[in-house]
Design a protein around this nucleic acid. Sequence first.
RNA 1: GGGUGAUUAGCUCAGUUGGUUAGAGCGCUACCUUGACAUGGUAGAGGUCGGAGGUUCGACUCCUCUAUCACCCACCA
Length: 898
Amino acid sequence: MSANLEKTYNHHDVERRWSSAHWESEGIFDAEHFRVFEGGKEPYTVLMPPPNVTGSLTLGHVLNHTLQDIFIRYQRMSGKEALWLPGTDHAGIATQTVVEKKLREKGVSRHDLGRKEFLEHVWKWRDEYGGLILKQLRKLGISCDWRRNLFTMDEGASKAVRHAFITLYRDGLIYRGKRIINWCPVSQTALSDEEVIMKPRKDKLVYVRYPLTKRPGEHITIATVRPETILADVAIAVNPEDPRYSDLIGEMAVVPIAGRHVPVIADDYVDVGFGTGALKITPAHDPNDFEVAGRHNLPVLCVVGRDGRMTDEFGYAGLDRFEAREKIIADLEGRGSLVKVEEYEHNVGYSERADVVVEPYLSEQWFVRMKPLAANALQVVNDNQIRFHPAHWISTYRHWMENIKDWCISRQLWWGHRIPAWYDQEGGIWVAESYEEACHLAGTDKLVQDEDVLDTWFSSWLWPLTTLGWTGEQAENDDIRAFYPTDTLVTAPDIIFFWVARMIMAGLYFRKDVPFRDVYFTSIIRDMTGRKLSKSLGNSPDPLKVMDVYGTDALRFTIVYIAPLGQDVLFGEEKCEFGRNFATKIWNAARFVFMQREKAFGGMDEFGCAYQCFNSEAMVLSDAERWILGRYHRMLDAYHKAFGQFRMNDITRIVYDFFRGDYCDWYLETLKIELAGESSETRKHQAVCLAVYLLEGVLKMLHPVMPFITEEIWHHVLRREDSESIARSAMPMPETGWHDRGSDSFELVQKTVSETRSIRAVFGVPHDMTASLIIRAPEKTVRRLFSDNGAVVEGLTKCNVSIAEDSQRPPHAASAVVDGNELFVPLEGLISFEKEIARLEREVNSVSGYVRRMERKLANKGFVDNAPDDVVENERRKLAEAKSNLGKLQANLKVLCN
RNA sequence: GGGUGAUUAGCUCAGUUGGUUAGAGCGCUACCUUGACAUGGUAGAGGUCGGAGGUUCGACUCCUCUAUCACCCACCA
């Protein structure tokens, strides 16, 4: 490897050289429990939210996994034994749907194949395509311990699921019951409440007349949006307080079309103000009606089947529920039962996956009793044993926990963990690890296993345990002892209920300890107009393409830079220019530093020797160097603090600002001048060492965000083996006290340079022309500062500098005042007096306005009496400085006006 | 109906316990291809911080009300 970098930064080469495959073979990212137990290293663990096996990489993954990688790399470099647990989720409905769709293209349904053969197809599909997302994640450069990759259907995880189910069942927290659940007519399975999305929808509110049995000619009118369920009506309900209907309570009414005689009942549930104040009761097709029916001992009739088609005996059977609705409205009208139809917009539940209206469906399902689990899970968050970032998610979490309902965990699918329950011929339920065990318990071998599988999240909620090898019966091992509880969970806020809350419950229940300490909720990524990214909108850029065009580091840096804690992110791939430009800048700056190194030292060996002995404390520093070291340590301090506060976009901002604004724009520019000057060789050697030292520090700080480019450059800092990694190097720590060492005196030089450059630009002094700069500095220390930095000022302003305590003001000069020091740039032939007068007048106005405000402030007794002394003192000092500057500005203006 | 968050320059956003004349990137204007970098440099124009009130010596920052937008939760047919 040559000592310096290639002239042009090529991210493809760099990413190829330091690929995930390279590090996997070196075992660089592997974490071991013995290093915790015997090596005394502190553990740090991140749980990867397992992506769906059906998935491919989205920008959401990019943000999410980059953040996790940043945490992991940072902690690894901070000396912890950092473990990142990867894996994939079997994603029940999603995967089954994908495979069924593929089969359907060949004209085969899963029922044609049968359960066993269908599952073979799913496994085959998973083996073939299931690794795609992990491959893509590797491209992102994330540093997991890939040896521990877990799939939620692996044997260990499956064992854990069975154990969890059995334990909860024995503890009375899982039960089987007949309830109204959310039914997806497309996937033909039950869903949990969380899998139902409420969406506004326009429907018809239909007013229907029900004749009263014993009062010929009289009737009661109800309003419904689901007229097709009239066929299953078992009562009419009114509010007991409603005077309009009080005399009708106890009467019988006739259900149109069905001809059924049903009672008029009174129930508080009915809202007097809605519709007609009378409500039809259809227990099988509405959860509220089901409850009302329970209170009044009413029968339950069902007219909609599992496929969303009618099953009634009134001539609608086989019709889709929405077709039946239209037909019934027409039929009601034909019979004269229809009063009127109103347009009505209301919220309707849709199936998350299939995006169809969910059918409330009465069926036998398995449920988890959530209230007892929620109590502890809420407690640990209230007690700060688990911290949310940003913290405001606690109120959302709390609200859900306090209003929690039982969790429907059975799914009428084939792909998933089969429910470990068997039924005997009398209908008795036997929950056991295996058929054999169930037979043993039941005392018979005539048992049939429950056909259903478990909700995917029933395995996900055990993820913190199963990834560490917990199977329930095998509840203890070295990994769990070393790494549980895990530390940081990074996840999108939309699965706070699905996953985060339930993991907390499971951790507390099965391990008696929280599953993690900190939860970082990532931003939701939107397009530039604020819309959510989605495949159907076509507004979702392909991250792999973005990585290819701009570079993986550029994408990682950009997305973290623009993603503040707790805020949505508007992303357009052109934003990655920002990260790409920064990467290029780093490359070029490093190349420059290495060039200077080569000039000063010749060979890498000579440099290596000097660099390894280098100590900035033992070096005689220039003002610029003292300043940059002060800035460096201040930045380091801010950087580590930002990590502590989970302010991830701050860390990119902090390093970016330092590197661009301070290191490149000022410090490297002064370094050029220093090295071109007359200093001794030793001094030049030290200057180069310092430049490399600071560069290496910045590389380490950037490494968690930009792993590839920092790795490449780091390998050029010294001779290093390919097996070595910056990822295993030590993160620099801040030293305080640089402020006291006068690190800010260089700022006066900077201000002087900027003012002088401004004058040159405003008056159009040609670039190749050397001008003069006269500095009138009343204080000796300041004159000393300028004379020490004379070459720097001359180099950066392209002016010959002269310094004096009280020099004559040249006649044709532009002027400026910096901290009480006057700058004169003689511009014979170039100066426009009008321009200069206008410029000075603007400045005088601005400063005198400031002075007036400050005088008013300090004349205010309330301020002087109430504000802290140091604040008042500071304001006095500022006023004095401004007044002194103002006086000098006015004097210079006066000279011009005469 | 309840809850949460946002509102600062043309655009996208910083502004961490209230105390410098409110900052950056992109875009824009002018100048510059100088031996790290035009994916760059230097200089410049451009906001009074959604609106109204209040607390305070002092408010972009705290409180109240209000407007707009976004998201989450909620069984009124």
